[in-house]
Amino acid sequence: MAFDANDSLLLCEIEQFLYHEARLADDHQYEAWESLWTEDGVYWIPANGEGGDPEQVMSIVYDNRSRIALRIKQLLTGKRLSQTPRSGLRRIVSNVEMLGRENQDLRVTANAFVFESTLRGDLVWASRNEYRLRRVGGELRMAYKKVTLVNNDKALYSMSFLI
């Protein structure tokens, strides 16, 4: 897409948003992370490739806004055993691209590379992420996040952290 100075400023804001979202997830700041979502947010981690219609086939995660809230509430109990102790996490979000606008949302894609340390051992998760970001009250919010893991066609170990 053609770029002008305004787009450069916007891209900078988008990148800052994605880095912020990544840091909150890495640091298990569950409530702050949840507050980044719009009221109609959809959090999707397909299985078996790009994922067919998530309304028809199994996904690793396909959360509407209320299930995102439930997932966060469960983590906040401190008794979610797969996150007690919490995964050690650091992630790199890169290759951020603005793909365009869809209604009021910005369509953005990025690559992510997550290092996770657990009781089982250490592992790396790699994904292409797609976001739809929306300005709500002057701030960017996340209306959609799709995390397409490179290896989602294979058997995966538990991943109960926020990716």
Binding site: S59, L70, S82, S158
Partner: peptide, 15 residues
């Protein structure tokens, strides 16, 4: 989908 699989609200804890 909510309860099972690698990120399942139940099965991640069984795992």
């Amino acid at each position: 989908m909510g309860s099972v699989g690698p990120a399942g609200l139940l099965l991640a804890d069984d795992g």
